[in-house]
Structure formats: structure tokens, C-alpha cells
Write a protein that binds this DNA or RNA. Sequence first.
RNA 1: CGGGAAGUAGCGCAGCUGGCUAGCGCACCUGGUUUGGGACCAGGGGGUCGCGAGUUCGAAUCUCGCCUUCCCGACCA
Length: 569
Amino acid sequence: MRWSKSFIPTLKEDPQDAEVISHKLMIRGGFVRKLVSGVYSFLPLGVRVLEKVKRIIREEMDIKGSQEVLMPAIHPPEIWKRTGRYEVLGEVLIKFKDRHGRELLLGPTHEEIVTDLVANNVKSYKELPLILYQIQTKFRDEPRPRFGVMRTSEFIMKDAYSFDCDVAGLEESYKKMYDAYCRIFTRCGLPFVPVQADPGMMGGSVSHEFMVPSEAGEDRIVICSKCKYSASTEVAECRTKAKSVSAKEKTLPIAQVDTPGITTIEKVSELLKVGAEKMVKTLIYKADGNVVAVLLRGDHEANETKVKNFLKVVNLELADSKTIEDVTRAPVGFTGPVGIRNTRIIADNAVRNMDNFITGANKKDAHIINVNIGRDFETKEFADLRMITKDDGCPACGKSIEVKQSIEVGHTFKLGTKYSDVLGAKVLDKDGKEIVAVMGCYGIGVTRILASVIETNSDKDGILWPISIAPYSTVIIALNMDDKKVKEVSEAVYDALSKAGIEVLFDDRNETAGVKFKDADLIGIPIKIIVGAKNAKKDIVEVKDRKSGAMTEVLLKDISAHLMRLTGA
RNA sequence: CGGGAAGUAGCGCAGCUGGCUAGCGCACCUGGUUUGGGACCAGGGGGUCGCGAGUUCGAAUCUCGCCUUCCCGACCA
């Protein structure tokens, strides 16, 4: 492709509304443009990278025997109502009406649709196992689209679904997909970590997230320094050892202290000169509409995923101030478990070990000290409800752990029969008996891969695409198109490489050398072929590596062989 | 939805305490000189100052409402 004929609108300056590196570089490099918040156009360069990634995905999925399908983006709501996810997804679903007033929605994912497809068309155990996948656009009304293409309302996903006769079959399919995912991310040049995760609204028992450590990530993961343990902080268990009875302190008489206007743990801690670890914070939640008090040690943070899973609820949100006032008869900031009304109390395991602690008094401008469970209030419900920190030990081996910000690029789930049951995906087994298909589902954020690769592969000049997914492997930089010999040699190189099947971008623009170098680096082409006047006279060109800067001189006649070696074409 | 910031040419910004025809850099068009890391000279085109109302003789500038975008929180590929 000739640059002079290409639609590659590069920018010299960072766009005003971009914060993270990948967003800035994708805009500046002319890969994408925003239409509205969370909705992007992919420009020619962006499409080329996207297609490279898709090809890798298809190759790896096909090798595992899964088959590509293409399901619709427009769905009838009925099928979503049958599985109950119409309500679970709620506002995330983008709904509209057709001309007949019939409600339709844009698919946020496709468990319902594939399961229905399989239910209607697969009848025998002989047809299983079956793995279907598609690369398709998903629509989700995100609460907050973010970071360019990282989190958008419309995005391209590769989603796969496995159907097996039994759990053993699912295990096999799951392993295949897991392996395929590792290969896909490796080929895309991503430093990924598979971690245990929470299945969330997908359902099922086991899930793994494929995480790319990066500052721009929206999630955190725990990695053990010693053993192989890795998990999302959402599920990483906190090992809280129960204190022995002998270690318990003698209980002191409960007493009220005045804390006028002091509503936060930090300020109470400051005022009473007591560490936050001697306090208990009481968080009032609404869990599927019911009020629940969650008790945590003052210096600990709630893990809402754990709370949700413990309570077996779908919706969990901090209660509004009115609810808190109803339950505690005090303003927000003085909440405590003592004397709280009509409220289920659950406590983190760490709270069980505490004696003579400080809590809110459920009274304006007051806290109480020397509070003890059993004596001053009662709860029998203890569980791991807090967020793990780097000071906690590894849940598996107890050694030190690291907590890293990460980007989720893939997620795999062992679904079981959640969908196949409801939607009737059943087959007859050997004995003619009906069995429900056991399912797994597997997602990759295709557009998000681009952002992740850039987050982990860039320098001050621009993107460093791995050759496997670079929009072009090679760019020819003709330093001066007005120089006859330079033009002639560049054209010859372009011709030779094109014929050799190398994906080459020929910068034939009438621009200065500086502009061409800057643009080439910005868009991240891995190999530059530089044609300058002096060398051109001797039929020599320079081949320069984008990442290392290493340069070699190559004779014109050898150029295509040389590039074929470099690119593996 | 809660909290914060911002909307002026394609992009990045200045102007904004009320006063001339709204400005700068980049980009773009024409001509010329240039060409090894974002060249130079000359000429030129491009604006509902986010939208609407109000105050005023006069509003990009002040007031109110709305919209949009970005950042921090709840969601997830």
C-alpha cells in the first residue's frame, strides 16, 4: 500500500480526552476515531490489526475442533426472560421497538441464543461434543465506557460455547479452550496471567480470567511469589486464623464516647488515638432489596463479590442514607451493630477475633468502645468478606503475594446446565434417555486485545506492534521522493516485497524525512526500510528494527529474501 | 446514578474581571525553496465560540437551564 493513497490520519498531539497510553496512541496513530462515548470507528490501520488478531483466534479455535458460526445481534426479549437474565442484565441491555411495537434488544452475549440453537438442532449424544464460536459485535449499555477501546458499549468479542454429554466432557472441552486461549494471547504478544475468577452473572462454578498486568487495568489480581497461585482479588481468599480462646482479652465495660461530627474511621482513629484495626466498620447494604449489615475490621475493605456470593444475591449496593437512618435511627457515620434494628448482621472472619473494639453508637455524634460480640450484640454469621491485600499471605501456601492492576482480555466459564436446562438443550444418550447438555462458555475481547497490546508494548515514540499483529510488517521510507534514484530504488523494493507477499506500506509521500520517521514509529511498524540518496546510488537500502533500533545494510537484489527471513513470510 | 473537570476552525490551545472585524500553533489549499528524525518563505481557505433562554445599548465573556465529553466510584470482554 502506498502511504500517499492511504487513509492514515495521524496526529502530532495527544487528543484532549485521552488519558491512557493505548487510547492516545490509537487516536494519534489513526487506528480509531470516536463517534460518541464508548463507540468507535476502526480506520484502515485498526481494521488490519483487528483482522490479524481474528485470524490468530480462528486458527487456534479451529485447531481445537470448534466451528465458527455467526449469530444475530438482534434478539427477542422472550428468550432472555426464560433464563431470568432479562432482569439480571437490566439496564445493560439496549432495548428498542420495531415498527410493530415489538420489543427487541441488542445482544450483550450469546448463551441464550446458542443454547436455543443447539436445543432445536442437536438431538443425539453422537453429535456431541460440540464447540461453536463466533466473532461478533456485542452491545452493552455500560455504566461508564472508558479508556478508548478498552471498555466500550459496542465491542467485538470472540465467544465460544461448548456442549458436552457430561461433566467429564466439559472438563475436556474446557481444557481445549484454555489451551487455545493461552496460545492466542501468546501469539498476540501479551504477557498474560490466567487467574481464578468469579463467574458473576454468567453463572456456573468455575471460571478463569486471562489477565494482562497493566496500570490501565480495571481489575486487580493476586499472584503468589512462591507457588503457582493466582486469582482475581474478587475471589482471592483471605486466610484469617481464628484466635485461640486464651489469646482473647478480658472484656471491659462498654462505654460511649463523644465524637461530634466525626464520621470516618480515620478521624475516629485520630481522635481516640487508636489504630483502625481496633475498630469495626459497619456497612449497610441493600442485598436484593433486603437490608444487611456487614462488619469489617476498620482497616479492611469490603469485597462485594464475596458478600454477594455469601448472601446468594444478584444485586448488592450500599444503602442510601434514608435506609441507614431508618435502621440505625442515627445519621450516616455513626453506624454500629449494637442495637441495630431489623437487620441481618454478617461479619468478616477478622472481626471474630476482635475484643473490646470501637464502633458507631447508632447515635448522632457518638461512638462506643469496648464492644464485644456475644455480650453487646449477636451474630453467628462469619465469613471471608474482605478484600485481600498485599499484606495477606498466599491463600494456597501462605507466602507473600503481589497485587497487580490488570486488564481482563479473556474469561472462561464452566457453566454446567444453567442454560441448557431452562432452554431445553437435551440429547438422547446411548440408552435413549434424555440428558441435558453440560456447557462451557469462553470469551475474548478482540478489540480490547489491541488496547492491551499497546499498553504493554510502546515507547516514547509510539506503538511497538509484535510482528504477528502489526498492521504492516514493513514500511519503506523513501527519504526524498524528488531524488530520481531514491524513487527508483524505493519503487523497486516496494515491487519486490509486494511480489514476495510481504505486507508493506510504502511511504511515498512528499514529506520530509523527519515526518516519515515519526509517523512510522507512531503507528508501530516493526521493520523500516530506509532508502537514502547515498546508499541508493549503490543499490543499498537500510533495514532498521523498530524496537531495538538495530540497522543492517542490504543490497537491493537481496531485499525480499532478507525480509522473508525477518517476517517469517 | 453520585463526586470532580472541560466544551472556542480538523487537532492542541489562548481570549473569558462586559466593548472594535475572535486569535495562536499544527493541519489544509496555491506557488517557490527544501528533504537522514515532526523544514522555510509568500499568499490563501476554513468558526451556529456545545445548545437554549435571560441580563444588557452591546455577550465567546455575566446568570439560569439543558446537552456532550473526560476522570474517580458501582459493571465486565
